[in-house]
Amino acid sequence: MAERVSVRHADFDLSAEVAALRSADAGVGAVAAFVGTVRDLGDGAAITGLELEHYPGMTEAAIEAMIDAAQQRFDIRAARVVHRVGPLRLGEQIVLVAVTAAHRGQAFQACEFLMDYLKTQAPFWKKELGAAGPRWVDARSSDDAALERWGLRSGNAA
């Protein structure tokens, strides 16, 4: 089985990741992919970049469990999550979630489920860098609410 999770400093190539995910599987009829990027505005203030920290080993295990949950909940063929850590500049890619399925509905839903899950359950922490100095990003209750749409309680931002 191909590696499902990669947490790393290096950037990723969306086309190459999708091609690898759907290769040698003639049952794939749909691919849904989400890419998160570094934007120039944090919590009301301009930022110049991010630093991302994670818990090595624990983070990968948590995402593996999320993919298992997605495969139990949705009729999908495969999933791949790439999440970068370390310093990132404006415009750089942060995260990729890609899902293959026979049909688009399951692929879309599983991709969104995985992102909602990851935002509130995977041990990553973002620090925003800007003119006012570095600032750890606060968890958002809206992300907890997004996960609750799937019937899962989070409480991450509580």
Binding site: H83, I94, K119, T120, P123, F124, W125, W136
Partner: peptide
Amino acid sequence: FFPPVTGG
């Protein structure tokens, strides 16, 4: 031990 997570 863990602050709330903020990845993605």
